[in-house]
Structures are given as C-alpha cells and as structure tokens.
Amino acid sequence: MTSNTSTDLRQAAEGHRPSAASRGVYEYVVLSAAGLFAIISLYFVGSIVWQALPAIRHQGLYLLTGTSWVSGGATPALSKFGGLSMITGTIETSLIAIVIAVVVGTGTSLAINLLLPSWMRTIAATTVELLAAIPSVVYGVWGMLVLAPLVISTVGPFLNSLPGGNAVFGTVVAGQSLLLAGFVLAIMVLPTYVAISREVIGAVPHELIEASLSLGATRWQTIWKTILPTGRVGLLGAGALALGRALGETVAVVLVIGQVNQLNFRPLQPGVTLASWIASQWGEAIGSDQMNALFALGALLMAASLGVSFISTRLVSRQRSLVNR
C-alpha cells in the first residue's frame, strides 16, 4: 500500500457500495432463506386457518358461544363444539397471571435497578433469566405435585375461611384450579416481563430521577410520579408480551388447571384453556371433525396471541425511540 492510503481507501470503499448489479450468489442465498421463512410464516397461518374452516362452517358462532363439547362420531351433524369455557378460562388464567406478574415484576425491576448494589444486579438478572430456562413441563409437574396439594391443604381452606370466601373464590375441591394455573403462569411469564421492564426502567434518564428528588420527592414519589410514567409505554408493552406468553402456554396449564370443560368464574374452581384443551383432546380428535374444531380453537388462539405480540413489539420499540430521542 502506498503512502496515499486514505484517499485510495475511500475510493475503494465507494467503488463497492452494494448495488443491484453487484448482487452475487451470497445475496441470493441470504435472501432466499429470508423468503423461505416468510413463506413458512404465511403457510403457518394459512394451514391452521384452513383446517379450522370446516369447523367454522359447521359450528358457526357456537364455537365462540357454546359450552358443550360433544363429538357426533360417525354422524358429524350431531357434533357440538362450543369453545366458550376455553375462551373464558384462557382469559381468567391470563388475567390472574398478568396481574401477579406485573405487580411482582415491576417491583422486581425497580429493586434491581434502584435498590440492589451494582454487583448484585447481574446476579439478580441472571437468576430471573434462569427462571425462563426451566422448561414449562417442569413448572407443570411442580405445580401439580407440589403446589396443588398446598392449595388443598392450606391456600384453599384459608381463602374459604375469609368472609364471603366461598362466594368469591369458590369452594376448594381439588388443588388444580384457575387460580393455580394463573399462579404458575405468572411465574412462567415473570422473566419475560422483568427482562423488558428492567430495560425500560433502567433507560429512564437519571436526570429526571435527580430532578424529582431535588424537588423534595421521596423515593416512592419519584418512582410513582416520574419513573413509572416515563416508562409506561414500555411497561405496557412488557405486559402485553407477557400476556401473549400466558395466553398460549399449554402443558403446564394442562397439569394444573383441572381440565374440566365448565364455565367457571371462581378462582378455586377448575377450568380449561384454549391451548390446554387442544393438547388434552388431541388423541381422540385426530381424523375427525373434532380435530377441525381444535384447529378452530388454535386459530382463535393464534389471532389473539399474534395480535397481542404485534402490539407489544410496537409498544416496546416506541418506548425505545421515546427514550433515545
């Protein structure tokens, strides 16, 4: 290389700007991988909807409003597939999960960012990440074999002993219940929520915290009036992301919810969710019109979770651009 390197380099660099003409094998290989994924994604949505169509045609609105699930066997005309209990069960367990996860998760993120000494922050963050690495079936087994007996022996009787406890929570029968499912889901989505909310809270400019404190605000006033409002969009996104996870969780829920197709609204009663019903009915449904009905529940779940997931990514990226402005 000559002494005149810098101009040479610049010219060389400018001569090789990527352009349509310079596209080689490499660019096409990379592009086709991306294209393949796009096709898979479309095919994914398409095939679930396609298999759901027969059920939608035969059952119509009953899929959303009906409560009995009866296969007509050889005479499909007698089949009744109502998904209302699954829909309400999904909403109930997800709500319980999201309330617990948001409250505990926000507190955790605040503690990690504002209370822990810096050397403990990494440890705490890794610990929460480890929670996410535990397979969902393990949480299910733990919930079923360890927590469910606790609900029968301690938590249930305690809730029932409260004034009006039977009316509000329902009478405890088995440990497996909407409440237990919501609780296990909360533990499972907590890492998702904390990962985002920790980032959101950590990104609140330190100058705002100092401004708040230097006006005489207490630590909590600073959190409540400055930190949380500044991060609210991102926290909402984190909550939506966690909600998406909770909606679609399957095997853990099967093991702790009781799997009873009933329209139940009290937390100590058993129930069922869209995903758990698909998993538990699958064996007997294959090849029959019931399978299409399960695909229809799947399509509903897909619409809900993809919608929530889409909204949450938008919210989180909006928060990022708000803070980095």
Binding site: A34, A38, L301, L306
Partner: peptide
C-alpha cells in the same frame, strides 16, 4: 420480515404442533 419475526417469536408453541401435524 423483522415485524413477522418478532411476532412469530411470541406465537404459542402448541400452534407449532398443529402446524407440524398439518404439514
């Protein structure tokens, strides 16, 4: 594709089972 990817990351895993069955 970035939006599709972010959305697919959040897709429930049971649906992958349905998809695998169909395909």
């Amino acid at each position: 594709l970035r939006i599709i990817t972010a959305t697919m990351v959040g897709a429930p895993s049971i649906l992958m089972g349905l998809f695998a069955f169909e395909v």
